[in-house]
């Protein structure tokens, strides 16, 4: 775990020196399982800052909700840093207005997995590198960290921030990028019919609350295609056609933009799997264009790039 006092003192310095107007991080929530995203505006506010593996959200989703010119600092993990870069590439924020406090990430603990292990009324969660101690109404549970990691974090190959202004904590070992491949392979190994059945089973559980959209840093459109009325692009209701359309288009809009952070799945109230689609698209981006989202703040995603020597001449 990174030194939380070091994070705080850097945050306080930035705010007191006026380098940034707002600091995006987490504060303790009402229950130990749910730390809340927080906006700190004064050095004193920063006393409330917490850092733990229970911080579920990708804070970059708030960047496009703040005034574009505001100077912002964020505590970023690997995926959040890459999302910030992707937003900078898409000109949603100038890198000059950002100060990133990087933290190597040991993976997010999935609160649903914690409740499944330890039962109701979780009173405290204490983590070390290898293990997590959970105290709930029914007693104490010592669980291996790996068992509680969110699925996306189990596949993460870039736990370290790639372009932080300051890094707090020692960088972790980068893991094998084939880990993400394994999740896709299971899906790819199925027949077309089986794949469609899988997709339907997941997508048609949807209640169209759009928590996945709101939790995603890259879903910042002023008007989402599902909210568009004239013409209407999808069926409006929680019907098979409407739900399938939402899930397939949502995934495709992420091509070359998704950082595999898994915030969509963590936000979903219906436990719908979504990353098997985006991981597949990410894999295609890597294999066909040698592109990974957000590794720097300059390279445009392949589908946002057109060159004069494009072999598909109709494009230019």
């Amino acid at each position: 775990m990174p030194d939380i006092e070091a994070i705080k003192s850097e945050a306080k310095r930035l705010l007191s020196e006026g380098m940034v107007e707002v600091m995006l991080a987490f504060k303790a929530g009402e229950t130990p399982l749910h730390p809340q995203p927080a906006f700190f505006r004064t050095p004193d506010d920063v006393d409330e800052l917490v850092y733990s593996s229970l911080n579920q959200n990708n804070l970059a989703t708030y960047l496009t909700r703040l005034p574009k010119e505001s100077k912002v600092s964020m505590v970023v993990r690997g995926c959040e840093n890459r999302s910030v870069n992707a937003l900078v590439v898409e000109k949603q924020k100038s890198r000059d207005n950002l100060y990133l406090i990087g933290v190597p990430c040991e993976g997010i603990l999935d609160w649903r997995k914690i409740v499944a292990k330890a039962g109701e009324a979780v009173k405290s969660v204490n983590e070390s590198e290898q293990e997590v101690m959970v105290e709930s109404r029914s007693g104490y549970y010592l669980v291996e960290r790996k068992e509680l990691l969110h699925d996306s974090c189990m596949r993460c190959s870039h736990p370290n921030p790639v372009s932080a202004d300051i890094l707090i904590g020692e960088p972790l070992a980068e893991s094998d990028s084939n880990l993400a491949r394994e999740a896709v392979e299971e899906f790819e190994a199925l027949s077309v019919k089986e794949r469609y059945a899988w997709f339907r089973k997941e997508a048609e559980r949807c209640i169209r609350c759009y928590a996945c959209r709101e939790a995603c840093p890259m879903c910042y459109c002023t008007e989402c295609f599902v909210d568009h009325i004239e013409p209407r692009w999808t069926e409006s209701g929680a019907t098979p056609a409407g739900m399938q359309a939402w899930h397939i288009v949502r995934a495709f809009h992420q091509t070359g933009r998704c950082t595999s952070c898994g915030a969509c799945e963590r936000a979903c109230p219906m436990d719908i799997k979504m990353t098997y689609l985006t991981e597949k698209l990410n894999h295609d981006m890597k294999e066909k264009y040698n592109f990974e989202t957000g590794l720097d703040a300059q390279t445009k995603p392949p589908f946002a790039t057109v060159t004069l020597d494009d072999k598909n001449r109709f494009m230019v």
Partner: peptide, 25 residues
Amino acid sequence: SLSCLGCGVCTFLCPTCFCFDIVDE
């Protein structure tokens, strides 16, 4: 409301929220 994402989780899962929209498909 500062950190609210603006999704519909709280209202859709609420047993007393009943707002609806009428649409011509």
